[in-house]
Design a binder for these strands. Structure first.
Lengths: 146, 146
DNA sequence: TGCAAATGGTTTCATGTGAAACTATAAGGG
DNA sequence: CCCTTATAGTTTCACATGAAACCATTTGCA
């Protein structure tokens, strides 16, 4: 049986996910790109550095925790270091590895952006009722695991 | 009250949506990009042309129905025309507008790709049970309207 | 009518991005 | 130990993308 019925793009899951992701991400990204000269990739790097602060993550660990590839991380880190938002040192005992940490300046940016991000998330979730939010969380968990 | 708790990226909705969208889209996109030399944007254009066939859509209408901007559509159409998959004529009575249609060759590609796309969607949805699928549809409807 | 504003579409420019190649260092196996 | 292989990270190249400028045509209205 040949499957020739026209594909209805607006009912097609990958398409709908793509639209939703773009609108949700862009809404906030534009804001902090403009106000802080901070790209999405840079923000993600800052977020994980903030979260695992004190440990001093390597670029590879950042890549793992942000689902970005190492090239993207390398570039984001280079910009963050140039902007004085992140320090990069060499790992004791493994000169290949870098040790990344937020600077005080980096923390200030983080503390300004984090509430914006949270507010944006709340705004989206506010359009759902409690039951829908619970299902959404569950569905994402399921689809995202391995 | 200042909101300084570290932002957990892996629980953050925009981030999770972004990961999910990328994995879902790339899984299939890679396949038909390689086999048919067809980008995601080109595929979307073909999908709406197939769906509204006979009417002969303009580039603007394609843009509306694919949520792509007019630049992206212009480029995708140019490639499709060059590949002989789409014809472009000038609208009767409005020389600014184009009238786009799939060629027989275009239909062949469409008929080969559409089942791949559907199969990919089914594969994702198969990871959810019936109840979850219903909620997902409902949640996307709600989040995507307006 | 004639002219400013709007519309359809393309081109240009500056920037972002992934893949692959590359450098440097470390680890592992004979 | 040496030498192959693996790993961390950067650079290069080729291409995708969005914003703004642009051209042609049409519309609205003084």
């Amino acid at each position: 049986m040949i499957d020739r019925a026209p594909l209805e793009l607006e009912r097609f899951l990958p398409y709908r996910l793509s639209i939703l992701t773009n609108t949700v991400s862009q809404a906030i990204a534009r804001e902090y790109e403009r106000r802080f000269d901070l790209s999405v990739t840079e923000w993600r790097v800052m977020a994980v550095l903030a979260r695992y602060d004190g440990e001093g993550l390597s670029a590879r660990e950042v890549a793992e925790r942000t689902a970005m590839d190492k090239v993207a991380v390398s570039r984001a880190v280079a910009r963050l270091v140039a902007a004085g938002r992140v320090t990069r040192r060499t790992h004791h005992g493994d000169k290949r590895r870098s040790v990344l940490r937020l600077t005080a300046k980096g923390w200030k940016v983080h503390d300004a952006v984090a509430p914006l991000a949270r507010a944006q998330e709340r705004e989206v979730l506010a359009r759902l009722d409690a039951e829908e939010r619970a299902w959404l969380a569950r569905i994402l968990d399921k689809l995202l695991m391995a």
